[in-house]
């Protein structure tokens, strides 16, 4: 009996007894053993590198010489002397403000619709919707569709039907570029959170809905707001972080569409700017400063979304 009591205290110490921190930590050794392997690797491969790069953001570091401390100079240069960075910030904010919320809602709405179906149909549709994310180079199809030469799918057909007399530069003319990039991004957005939402929705027990029907839930919208969304809150938080990091970190797919030197920097994002300084110009101090700025913007957005999610179901 006593061993049972001590085991229960091990799991929830401090509730039944007030003990010293050290005593509580000693009692929790099992929890630390569970977290340990992950935490060790996480510290070595994430926490330390992140701290190092925050320190580097205050230095000039070209990867050959030892970093030279320059204080806030990188940050001052970013906001006062780097015009391209300001264009990138403007583009990224526009891009994130559209793709973040829309992709987030798309993930949830499609997952919710699909969840209503029978298992076989559900598995099949999940695959179809996830398809753009599963083939790593899915956006190549869009290069083919929007290609600016006469072989581009749209251009070829427009020319063939005599609607235009010369091919349109879908991916090189600033007035089309951002729109196309946003459309393609949204099309590829049913990824990680979509799968998490599907698994999460399937984990909600049917007794919850049966009880809801007895309590007077009338239609699927009431059910969604009062039962499904509150039960999904942990997954929604996960999805929000995915949407935020996905939309603020966008670079690779955009670059694949509009190239490494987009016309007038029309689709140049902060992340592309960072990669440019980090992997092309080897100014690691400056690149680190960009990543620190990006980090704070993302944390801010996450806090905002967190507050909104707490209102669900009230």
């Amino acid at each position: 009996m006593s061993s049972v009591v001590s085991r229960r205290r091990m799991v929830s110490p401090g509730i039944e007894y007030r003990e010293s921190l050290w005593a509580r930590m000693k009692k929790s050794w099992r929890s630390y053993a569970f977290v340990g392997p992950f935490l060790f690797l996480f510290t070595v491969f994430t926490v330390v590198p992140v701290i190092l790069s925050i320190v580097l953001s205050f230095t000039y570091f070209n990867m050959l010489e030892f970093p030279k401390w320059i204080g806030w100079a990188n940050y001052i240069r970013l906001f006062l002397a780097d015009e391209v960075f300001l264009i990138a910030v403007k583009n990224t904010l526009l891009f994130a403000a559209i793709t973040g919320p829309v992709s987030y809602m798309m993930c949830f709405i499609f997952a919710w619709f699909i969840n209503e179906l029978q298992p076989k149909v559900r598995a099949f549709l999940t695959l179809l919707f996830y398809a753009p994310s599963i083939s790593g180079s899915a956006y190549t199809i869009w290069q083919f569709i929007f290609s600016q030469d006469t072989y581009g799918y749209i251009n070829a057909h427009l020319l063939n039907l005599n609607i235009v007399d010369k091919p349109i530069g879908w991916l090189i003319e600033p007035k089309y570029m951002m729109t196309i990039v946003i459309i393609v991004t949204l099309w590829m957005s049913l990824g990680t959170s979509f799968l998490a939402f599907i698994a999460g929705l399937q984990g909600i027990s049917s007794t919850l809905y049966e009880a809801g029907a007895i309590d007077g839930i009338k239609n699927r919208w009431q059910e969604l707001w009062y039962l499904t969304l509150p039960a999904m809150r942990p997954y929604l938080m996960f999805g929000a972080i995915m949407a935020i990091t996905g939309s603020f970190n966008a670079a690779g797919n955009i670059q694949a569409l509009t190239g490494p030197n987009p016309t007038d920097y029309a689709t140049w994002t902060v992340m592309q700017h960072l990669n440019d300084y980090g992997t092309v110009r080897y100014e690691m101090g400056y690149a680190s400063a960009i990543s620190v700025v990006l980090f704070f913007v993302m944390v801010g957005s996450q806090r905002l979304v967190q507050r909104m999610l707490h209102r669900i179901g009230n």
Partner: peptide
């Protein structure tokens, strides 16, 4: 999760 992996 919100720190860019590029710099690490």
């Amino acid at each position: 999760l919100m720190f860019t992996p590029t710099v690490t």
